[in-house]
Design a binder for these strands. Sequence first.
RNA 1: GUGGAUGUGGCCUAAUGGUUAGGGCACCUGACUGUGGUCCAGGCGGCUGUGGGUUCGAGUCCCAUCAUCCACCCCA
Length: 425
Amino acid sequence: MGKYTRPKGTQDLLPATQRYWEYLRATVRREALQYGFERIDLPLFEETALFTRGVGEATDIVEKEMYSFEDKGGRKITLRPEFTAGVVRAYIENGMRVQPKPVKLYSVGPIFRYERPQAGRYRQFHQFNAEVLGVQEPLADLEVMLLAWDIYAALDFQGLAFQLNSTGCPQCRPAYIQTLTAYYHQHAAEICDTCRRRLTTNPLRVLDCKETRCQPVIAGAPKIAEQLCTECETHFTALRGYLDELEKPYTLNHRLVRGLDYYTKTVFEVWAEGIGAQAAVCGGGRYDGLIELLGGPPTPAVGFAAGLERIIMVMQHQETPVPELPTPPVFIAHLGAAASRVAVQLLVDLRAAGIGAQIAMSGSLRSQLRTADRKGGRFALIIGEREMEHGEVTVKDMAQGWSQTSIPLEAVVAWVQARLKRVSE
RNA sequence: GUGGAUGUGGCCUAAUGGUUAGGGCACCUGACUGUGGUCCAGGCGGCUGUGGGUUCGAGUCCCAUCAUCCACCCCA
């Protein structure tokens, strides 16, 4: 091993796995565009305050997971730990409120969180993100859930489970939290230390504690879905109505509360099997207060993010068929200085004609052909002294055993073109 | 941040505390003249993660450190 290793929690995406990434990116792009989402690309870093305000001071992300630093101008900068805050910033900054509602945006790219890496968790990882801004109606929630659904369906996911809940809004959530903490204080002796602490710091979070001793308490806990205000109740019922109508399966999960401060009403996750302890491949929800909080006009919005590494892990676990990346069909072998000049000319002529081609750069004819074989090209073109004398090129169809033919040099491009066309038909 | 497991060439791996750390994959070269995949031959590539210690002698035992993996927390 060399002197340098990749920073903890980062990864090298080697050529061997690129076909998964290409396929995944193509799939999410196709689905997003089909839904009418427009792509938006944002800076990898933003000023730190955007995230501390947007995501929430008391969240794990802000408290311990941000990659923050000061730049040479003394500005406090953070590598983005999620997309939503940046999307909202761009929405406000670029005056996107004047666009016809809803504004539907998607992004793909790296995300940074300073955490201890483990299976399916990295410090630099990739997310697909989609947001619908400017619409309060549950159709917006439905839209992002359907997009998530269709992406996983297009990738032929098995063993999927959608988890759904509503966490209420500033109208009804405070009352629920009171009921919840009151209930928990009655059971203070039965719960774990962490949950006791959560009651003051982040009460909703007690609901997704995994401690065995807490499970009976959680099971008996009051459910927020049963204490929603009229508006939230109506919203949640309508959303579920659409999902029922479309026969999209979901599980009502009263324990699903999610980590970030900005969520209101709808929250959902998608869980998958086969990626270790990290079941969530996708998480999202509604954030009606965020845009105003970040200095924009009051604007309802809903969105979700999907972790691409986890999707790829599932694809590999399920052995999802993924097409090979295309390789150039032509490989040129040559012998001698004069032939190499002719070979180079042929190389550029082929490429100019739109035919993928590579040229041997070293070695005997034997090793050149061995390289041709391993590079997977369809045709090997040989130019040596004999071919030079006759103004010809020897053409080998690598899939056809040892047969080979001679083609006049000036006719080779057309010949290959015709052959490739016939193959593709 | 906490806990556990593991570190031998690019990858996989062998070596009762005892010679110059062995093999496989891959890679490169060759096999009468200019011809790929199989087979054959040869070759490149290691201060056994690093630093200490025990010992006549350490890949092997001990300590530390680093890295990776897995789990907790939480999330994608």
